[in-house]
Nucleic acid binder design. Sequence first.
DNA 1: TGTTATATATTGGACAACCGATATATTTAA
DNA 2: TTAAATATATCGGTTGTCCAATATATAACA
Lengths: 108, 108
Amino acid sequence: MMHGKGHGPHAHCCDMRGMLSFLILFLLSKKPMHGQELAKELEKRKGDKPSPGTIYPALKALKEAGLIREKKSGKTITYSLTEEGERVLRFSKRQFCRIFMGVFPNRE
Amino acid sequence: MMHGKGHGPHAHCCDMRGMLSFLILFLLSKKPMHGQELAKELEKRKGDKPSPGTIYPALKALKEAGLIREKKSGKTITYSLTEEGERVLRFSKRQFCRIFMGVFPNRE
DNA sequence: TGTTATATATTGGACAACCGATATATTTAA
DNA sequence: TTAAATATATCGGTTGTCCAATATATAACA
C-alpha cells in the first residue's frame, strides 16, 4: 500500500524505482500473459530480453503486493491483474503522464 | 558511452534504472536550471520534492558522464546539456517512446 | 526410456533511486 | 558582525532493477 507520499516499502510504480513493475502491470492489463510472453513483449519494446533474474522477482513482488494473480497450467503460469491491480494501474498511469508530460512528441 | 546493450556502468537512461537521469536531462534541455529549480520542477510533476540526497548525486553522475556542464554563479550552479548530452537525450527519448508506447492516452 | 527444450525460480553482485541527517559555502537580514 | 536563510554536497541505509549462473519442473522428442 502507500503510493501518495514517499514512505512505505516498495513502490508498485512511479517512484522512479517502480517503473518495471508499472510496465508489467500495464502489459498484463492489455492481455494476461505468462512470464516468457511478457519477457518477449519487453524485448520488443526495450531491445533486449530481460533475464529470469529480473522478471520473476518482479512478478513475485507484484503477486505478494496483491496486484496480480497466478493461474497455473502445466509448466506455464498465466498472470492477470487483480481488482487492486487495476485500481493501482489507473492511479499509476495518471501519475506517469504527469511526470513525463512533454516527453512524448504528441500533443503538449 | 554505452547505451545499446546491458553492459557498462550506469545508464543515463532507459534502462529502467536511468529514469531519473533521463528526466533530469529532459528538463534541463527545455531550460538550463540550478539544483533547486530542478527540484521544484520535479515536485510539480511527481507530487513531492526529491531530497538533496537524490538530486545532487544524480547531477554529479551526469556531469561525470559528460552529459551536463556547470556554470557557477555565487551560491547557485546552473546546469545545461553538453553536445553529448543532447545526443544522448535524443536517443533516450526515442527509446522511451518505444518502451512506453500505449501508456499515454493520446495516439500511440 | 533418456534427451532436449521450455517455463519458472533463486542467488550473488552491481548500480540507480530514494530519504533523513549532516555539513559547508554564500547571500541576505538583523 | 552575527544570525538566518538558501544552495550545494556527502553519508548510511533501504529498495528496485539488472545480469549471469544455477536449479528444478514439466513437456516434447528421440
